[in-house]
Design a protein around this nucleic acid. Sequence first.
DNA 1: TCAGAACTTGGACTCCGGTCCAATCTTGAG
DNA 2: CTCAAGATTGGACCGGAGTCCAAGTTCTGA
Lengths: 206, 206
Amino acid sequence: MRRAHANTKLPDRGRRERKKLETRDRILQAAAHLFSDRGFDATTVNEIAEAADVSRATFFNYFPEKSRIVAELGDRMTRDFLAFVSDVHRRDLPLAEGLREAFGHSAEALEQRPSLSRALLLETVARRDLDERTSHLARFHAGLGELLQAASDRGELRDDATPTLLAQIIGGTYVEILLAWMTDPELSLAERLDEAAQFLASTFVR
Amino acid sequence: MRRAHANTKLPDRGRRERKKLETRDRILQAAAHLFSDRGFDATTVNEIAEAADVSRATFFNYFPEKSRIVAELGDRMTRDFLAFVSDVHRRDLPLAEGLREAFGHSAEALEQRPSLSRALLLETVARRDLDERTSHLARFHAGLGELLQAASDRGELRDDATPTLLAQIIGGTYVEILLAWMTDPELSLAERLDEAAQFLASTFVR
DNA sequence: TCAGAACTTGGACTCCGGTCCAATCTTGAG
DNA sequence: CTCAAGATTGGACCGGAGTCCAAGTTCTGA
């Protein structure tokens, strides 16, 4: 069965497009493994290309800079987090619950693949490129903003705190705990985050 | 008048030592200016050496890596901050006052030389090198810890929060506000920090 | 089936951070 | 004044990121 002769441009040109996605993904996965083994700096583009079974030139075709890879991986994490937050939001939980669930979800994802997470966090949370860092941050904050706005609409919050400040407090604390976990993977990320979520929520509620 | 013929080794061997310090400082200053103009990555070691009027080789004599410069500059900022905190501590102010003063002092220092501060913050607060990032963090937290401990001793704090968590909340919020300021230098750092300090202190007090 | 578009590849090239070293200049001390 | 220890220098060298391009391969649409 042939595709209808649409004169509308097909965004998916079949096998071609599919292969591109596959290749892109292979590179990402290969890089993720290498980064989590040896770290970002100690992994060369050649090695990534090798592991993904493409040429160096092709690598740069997909990712104009090595660091774009890590940006993309970080993006995926953030997307996942935001999707979860949206879900929490939809369920209209009290702030305390919502925050705990969101943090808990995040902790779970991070603890699943600690070494990869650590590599990623170093390159996203502690990312040196300011623009990426903040666009990332902005999306994260937007997610938190949803929760806070909802809580505010329900009249849960103290009046003396702006949503912006609250988002900064929550976001900052989150990052700080992640950093602590990175340096001492012994301590349970989930516990720390949960403790923080509870405490924070309790201080914001009127 | 000659120096006594001490067989104890003199740590300061006169002009030699002094010149070294001067050179070190010249390099630091030159780098600071260049970083704040063009950013860290866009500044080459050659340019720094040139501006400091030393050879490339000498540069590497003083700073084995380009990034060590920024670490040192960051260190100086932190030292200054900690000294101030110690002072606050000595005056035994209530937490709210102490925090506001400390944040205020910091804001002042940062806003004095915004472009340099931004360059520095990118490389220290948002530093990619985990070890440096956290040793830095640790000292910062130690400083906050002083304040918190004192407040705790005076019985000012809620009992349900550990000092560690409080330090993480305060530190995280601080960093987050700095980042916001970096992306939008229009907004007043001092105001934001002050607002945050007041709010945070008020939530921690029993 | 086939032409052309889209993708891949190897290889040459530039730039920068970082290392090494032998030659030279500066300084402290007898 | 002398000279050895210490500091500075230029220049050669390496490895990795990123650019460019011409030639080869794979896919699509007709």
